[in-house]
C-alpha cells in the first residue's frame, strides 16, 4: 500500500469495483446492486477533497480559505440536483400543466371530462409550484451547510490520509443534516411539502375518476364498484361479529363492542371460562404489591445506534 492518500483512495475504490484494469472495472460496478452512483460520487468527492487538501496544505491562510470555499461549493453543487425521494415518481408527467388551458369554457357533451382535465392540470401546476419551493428551500439548506462546512475547514487536517478524507466526508454530512433539519422544521418547508402532497392527492383523484369513466364506457370492472362490494362485505362481517358478540357473554362489560341493542350486556363465554379457571383476584394476590414508587432510571452510554 502506497503512502499517497490519493492513491490509497483510488486503490480502495478500484478494489471496490473489482481491482482490475480499465475495461473490467466498469462491468462489476454497473451491476453492483445500485452502488455505482455512490462509488462515482465517492470518486468525485475524493478528487475535490484531494484538490482542497493540496491547496490548503502549506499555503497561506487566504489560500486555505479560498480552497475551503471551492470545496464546499463543490459539495453544494453535488447535492443541488437532489430531489426529495417521493418526487421522482411524479416527474414522469412533467409539463402536464402546460398542456391544458385553465380558462377555456367547459361546454357540450365532454364538459365533465374537460373540467376534470382542467382540475388535473391545475393540480399539476400546484405540484410543480410546490416542488420549486421545496427545491429553493433545499438549495438554501445546502448553502447554509456549505457555509458551516467551510468554517470547519478553516484549519485543514495535517495529513491527507484516507482516514482524513472519510472524516471530511462525515463532517460534510453532519453539516448537511443539521442545515436540512433546521430547514425541514420551518413553516415554509412544512407548507410547501403539504401543498406538494395535497396537490398530488388531488391530481391522482382526478386521474382515477377519468380512468373510471373510460372503464365504464368499455364495461370494464373499476375500483369504484370493487370498493362498493368490499364495503358491503365488510358491513356483513361487522354485523356477523356484532351478532356473535351479542350472543356470547363476556367477563368484562367493557369488551362489548357496539352491538345490537337487543343484547347490550352480552358476555363472551371464553372469558367467562377463563374467570372460572383462575379467579383474577387470586392472580392479583399472587403478585407483588404495587407500592413501588415512580422512578425514572437513566441508562445512558456511549454506544452508537
Amino acid at each position: 500500500m502506497t503512502n499517497d492518500p490519493w492513491r490509497q483512495w483510488q486503490t480502495f475504490l478500484a478494489g471496490l469495483a473489482g481491482a482490475n484494469p480499465a475495461g473490467q472495472t466498469r462491468a462489476p460496478r454497473d451491476g453492483a446492486s445500485g452502488f455505482a452512483p455512490f462509488l462515482d460520487a465517492a470518486e468525485r468527492y475524493a478528487a475535490a477533497a484531494r484538490s482542497f487538501m493540496q491547496s490548503a496544505a502549506g499555503g497561506s491562510a487566504p489560500a486555505a480559505t479560498a480552497a475551503a470555499g471551492i470545496f464546499s461549493d463543490f459539495l453544494r453543487e453535488q447535492f443541488a440536483d437532489f430531489q426529495m425521494p417521493w418526487s421522482a415518481a411524479l416527474n414522469a408527467g412533467n409539463g402536464a400543466s402546460r398542456a391544458f388551458s385553465f380558462d377555456s369554457p367547459a361546454l357540450g357533451a365532454t364538459r365533465e371530462q374537460q373540467l376534470r382535465m382542467q382540475r388535473m392540470a391545475g393540480a399539476w401546476g400546484r405540484i410543480e409550484d410546490a416542488q420549486r419551493r421545496l427545491q429553493r428551500l433545499w438549495s438554501d439548506a445546502l448553502r447554509e451547510a456549505a457555509t458551516a462546512f467551510a468554517a470547519r475547514l478553516a484549519s485543514p487536517p495535517p495529513t491527507a490520509s484516507a482516514e482524513e478524507l472519510r472524516k471530511l466526508y462525515d463532517a460534510w454530512i453532519d453539516c448537511a443534516e443539521e442545515a436540512y433539519a433546521r430547514t425541514a422544521q420551518t413553516e415554509a418547508f412544512c407548507n410547501a411539502l403539504a401543498e406538494f402532497m395535497n396537490a398530488g392527492s388531488e391530481w391522482r383523484r382526478e386521474l382515477q375518476a377519468d380512468i373510471e369513466h373510460w372503464a365504464k364506457l368499455l364495461d370494464l370492472p373499476a375500483r369504484g364498484e370493487i370498493n362498493t362490494l368490499t364495503r358491503r362485505l365488510k358491513s356483513v362481517e361487522d354485523q356477523l361479529r356484532a351478532a356473535r358478540t351479542g350472543l356470547m357473554p363476556t367477563a368484562d362489560a367493557r369488551t362489548t363492542r357496539a352491538a345490537p341493542a337487543a343484547a347490550p350486556t352480552a358476555r363472551k363465554p371464553r372469558a367467562a371460562t377463563r374467570t372460572a379457571r383462575i379467579p383474577p383476584a387470586a392472580a392479583r394476590t399472587a403478585r407483588k404489591p404495587r407500592a413501588a414508587a415512580r422512578k425514572t432510571k437513566r441508562a445512558r452510554g456511549k454506544s452508537k445506534s
Partner: peptide, 15 residues
Amino acid sequence: DDYTALQFDLGHIGM
C-alpha cells in the same frame, strides 16, 4: 403508580 422509564442512548433502529 408503578411506572418505570429506561432511557438508552440509542436511535430508533438501534433499540
